[in-house]
């Protein structure tokens, strides 16, 4: 797909997502992820970093895109916004792993091929991440991510209101970002 068409499509999806359309958001994130993976893996190849680290970086970047999506001015093109945020987070994420990489700014929108290979083994131990959260955030994250439950089912099971589950989930995601940031790597 042509670069500009892709950019239009992503912008539409994210715009709808920000108004609360979860299906559009799912399309957006699943469309962006292979490109992020492709950039991250290329950085790994180029700088001699084990490919396994790429997926951690991808996740961290996704979380940053998520938490900072309110800074996208929806009347502006999405490309410069996304490219800048991805570049900054990627450099930051690699740096905290003790890797110094450069990521050219035009990389994201210029990346032509998406990497659709299966992601490598996930290296961030989910239980260890969850241990950094408090209940009910931990239970909510577990039931939605690992258990595949929806907001409503989770709310019913935990005897909480759906609104409270949503608020707790949002806080949990902020908490996860902090955990990623502080995660000590043994394999440095």
């Amino acid at each position: 797909m042509k670069h500009s068409a892709r950019e239009e499509e992503w912008a539409d999806w994210l715009r709808m997502a920000m108004k609360g359309d979860a299906a559009a958001y799912d399309r957006f994130l699943r469309a962006v992820t292979p490109y992020l993976r492709s950039i991250a893996r290329r950085r790994c190849d180029l700088f001699g970093i084990p490919t396994g680290e790429a997926e951690d970086v991808v996740q961290e970047v996704l979380l940053a895109v998520h938490l900072k999506r309110g800074t996208w001015d929806t009347t502006r093109p999405i490309g410069p916004w996304l490219s800048t945020i991805v570049r900054n987070k990627m450099i930051d994420s690699f740096r905290r792993r003790g890797r110094h990489v450069s990521v050219p700014i035009e990389d994201v929108m210029e990346t032509l091929e998406a990497d659709n290979r299966q992601p490598g083994l996930d290296r961030i131990d989910v239980e260890k991440m969850l241990a950094g959260l408090r209940d009910p955030q931990r239970e909510i994250v577990r039931s939605i991510s690992v258990g595949g439950e929806g907001i409503r089912e989770t709310a019913e099971r935990l005897k909480m209101s759906e609104g409270a589950v949503r608020v707790a989930l949002h806080r949990a995601l902020k908490g996860l970002a902090v955990l990623y940031r502080s995660e000590e790597r043994a394999d440095r």
């Binding site: 979380l63 939605i144 989930l169």
Partner: peptide, 17 residues
């Protein structure tokens, strides 16, 4: 955590307040 699981989580928090 699998990247798919993370995406699952993020989509449940789609709207921006």
């Amino acid at each position: 955590m699998q990247t798919d699981d993370l995406i699952q989580l993020l989509t449940k928090d789609a709207p921006v307040k």
